[in-house]
């Protein structure tokens, strides 16, 4: 199947007062039509920057350099003139953010905002756009959609606002939706509703979704494939089931162990395992494997020499670890 989106060797660097900080170091992946790809990692692993690079919305100014190739259909998004890029944003690729509280303009009604999003790309009248906005609000599960058009964002709860954001993002029926931690700022019960909503909408519209999150519980629920990022690199990539049941990279294993859970039948308390240490400073990545300082399986002379390559371990399963053969049973 021809991929919808093909990212090749994406590198993003920020120039700051303290030097050049590489946020994304050569990330390559594809997104196929109608699939949901989850992008998982801790804060600072480069997952949000990857999402923003696809939209070409990394911070402006000379401080940020984006290199590589991002093919979307026939176009290379990184080489496109700004005008053409604007025609793609919101129209063929849309994005929703973590903070539904602040992502809506506080001084305009949600109806106006959705209608304007439509009118950015479609030549239709104000009234027609408002009708479509009401339809969209209904689709994302907001009751009394017609009346709600006249509401201001502050009249709505976080979950409602995120639904409005989703309605705006879907207003022009995009082929690809980038959801950057869309549930992180919401209550747990609302999180589940929003995930369900995104799943339903994806099935209805047939769009592809890049779901950026650090919540592995959500991943299990929504994703077809998962990509784990660490320090600006992909460290493991696999289908959702293999990744969650038999992770090969010690980092993925650590992430999975740090998810709180009560195993069925086992009611004794279990200590929650946290991965020791913090994400390394991207300006001073350790030699060899970036995860080595925090890895329980690290071996001197093997892990600290050069950067491990991404290796194929099974069809569609990639891992960036020298010792995956030795430690595989641990995760299985």
């Amino acid at each position: 199947m021809t991929p919808l989106l093909q990212v090749e060797d994406l590198r993003v660097r920020f120039r700051t007062d303290t030097g050049i900080i590489p946020a994304v170091n050569g990330v390559s992946f594809v997104v196929r039509p109608r699939e949901t790809l989850a992008l998982v990692g801790e804060s600072g692993s480069g997952k949000s920057v990857t999402g923003l690079s696809i939209m070409r919305l990394t911070p402006r100014g000379g401080g940020c350099r984006v290199e590589g190739r991002i093919r979307f259909g026939a176009a290379d998004l990184l080489a496109l003139p700004e005008e053409d890029m604007r025609a793609i944003r919101g129209n063929r690729i849309s994005m929703i953010f973590q903070e539904p509280m602040t992502s809506l303009n506080p001084v305009k009604t949600v109806g106006e905002q959705i209608a304007e999003a439509i009118r950015c790309h479609r030549q239709i009248g104000r009234q027609a756009a408002l009708d479509r906005a009401a339809e969209l609000l209904h689709t994302v599960g907001i009751p009394d959609a017609r009346q709600r058009l006249a509401s201001y964002p502050h009249h709505m709860s976080g979950g409602m606002r995120q639904r409005v954001m989703i309605a705006m993002a879907l207003s022009c029926e995009p082929d690809l939706l980038i959801a950057d931690e869309p549930t992180t700022a919401l209550d747990v019960t609302v999180q589940a509703q929003i995930v369900e909503l995104l799943k339903r909408l994806q099935q209805q519209t047939g769009m592809s979704v890049i779901f950026i999150t650090h919540n592995l519980g959500v991943v299990a629920d929504i994703a077809d494939r998962v990509m784990v990022m660490y320090a600006g690199r992909i460290v493991e990539q696999a289908g959702t089931v293999p990744l969650l049941t038999s992770p090969l990279m010690p980092y993925t294993q650590g992430l999975l162990r740090s998810v709180p859970r009560l195993p069925a039948g086992q009611h004794q308390r279990r200590r929650l395992d946290a991965i020791p240490g913090n994400v390394p400073d991207p300006a001073e990545l350790p030699a060899g494997c970036s995860f080595r300082p925090r890895c329980p399986h690290a071996v001197a002379g093997v892990c600290d020499t050069t950067l491990p390559e991404l290796e194929d371990t099974a069809p569609g399963h990639l891992v960036r670890c020298r010792r995956w053969r030795d430690i595989a049973p641990a995760g299985a």
């Binding site: 944003r89 129209n91 953010f97 602040t102 303009n105």
Partner: peptide, 11 residues
């Protein structure tokens, strides 16, 4: 965020 969101929508 809402300014960035507007940009994301292609405004």
């Amino acid at each position: 965020d809402f300014a960035i969101a507007a940009e994301v929508l292609g405004a």
